[in-house]
Design a protein around this nucleic acid. Structure first.
Length: 287
DNA sequence: GTGTTTGTTATCAA
DNA sequence: CTTGATAACAAACA
């Protein structure tokens, strides 16, 4: 559920908080999370490292250290990264708990303590997320298969068109979810971009008109930008680095709105299972 | 007990 | 090579 805007939000918040801090201690539970290293080796590699920068590529976060190594993080479905100035009780506003999240809690899988006493918690209910320590020279192994970043100049209309032409028979939703083509879109923003473009998610790419393609390209960019501005969509697990929910939910037009009236035409929003995902759309607004 | 939630990769089939 | 389907990972929640 964290998609590009959510990871970008966390990246910006962690960059502010973590740059120039030095790791003092690392604790992990769930050994699978740090494979291929053992939890012990993982901790040894990190302790003493000073953070140079925090970056994002696709849905991955990279915490770069001064010794030309980095920590790569993927939150997958339910990962959270929460930073606190000092170890303690605090808490954020978990979207579903209407209140407080104790840290650490049952789902805390890693705790990074810094020399100034601040702490970074990695929580992951479903344990799909991972942490990898690697030399900078190996970074390409993780990013090689990621497609174009949709918020860079590289994501031109011309490129979008050429990708669509290359995969003419895919439903547009399947196409947009393919991380090797465009990086960072997930179920939420694909459904939203299709709605904003008046296109049914099931339409084949080769059925889109010139005008629809131009519109879709524009809407992919604008919905991602607006969500970043609102600091992401908190429906289930996602929270920002300070533990607070993002503010994009009120802007959602279809995702999570099954049976609720369309914000444009009042027709109840339809929800089907497509491409193995919950897929939301308006039968009247999208053709 | 059942269905739902979904990011990513692997594998098999046509 | 394209595409589609399914499983695996794992756990909570209604």
């Amino acid at each position: 559920m964290p998609e590009l805007p959510e990871i970008e939000t966390i990246k910006r918040e962690l960059a502010k908080a973590l740059v120039d801090k030095t790791i003092k201690q690392v604790k992990t539970t769930w050994p699978k999370m740090v494979l291929p290293l053992s939890p012990q080796t993982f901790a040894e590699k990190l302790v003493g490292q000073k953070i140079k920068s925090v970056e994002r590529r696709a849905k991955m976060l990279f915490i770069h250290f001064n010794n030309d190594t980095l920590l790569a993080i993927h939150l997958k479905m339910t990962g959270q990264l929460i930073y606190q100035r000092s170890q303690g009780l605090i808490v954020g506003g978990h979207p579903q708990k209407n209140g407080l999240v104790n840290l650490p809690n049952n789902y805390t899988r890693a705790i990074f303590t810094f020399t100034d006493g601040s702490v970074l918690y990695f929580n992951d209910l479903r344990k799909f997320g991972w942490l990898k320590h690697l030399p900078h020279t190996d970074l390409h192994l993780l990013t090689a298969r990621s497609g174009v970043e949709p918020l860079t100049r590289d994501f031109s209309l011309a490129l979008f068109k050429s990708l669509l032409t290359r995969y003419p028979k895919r439903p547009i939703k399947t196409f947009l979810l393919d991380q090797t083509l465009i990086a960072g879109l997930g179920n939420i923003y694909v459904d939203e971009a299709c709605f904003l473009s008046h296109i049914l998610p099931t339409r084949l790419t080769n059925s889109l008109s010139e005008k629809e393609i131009t519109n879709l390209h524009k809407n992919i960019i604008s919905v991602l930008k607006l969500s970043i501005q609102k600091k992401g969509t908190s429906t289930r697990n996602y929270v920002r680095a300070d533990g607070q929910p993002g503010g994009f939910v009120p802007h959602l037009m279809v995702y999570g709105r099954a049976k609720l009236p369309c914000k444009i035409c009042r027709t109840p929003i339809a929800k089907i299972r497509f491409h193995g995902r919950g897929t939301h759309f308006c039968r009247k607004c999208q053709k």
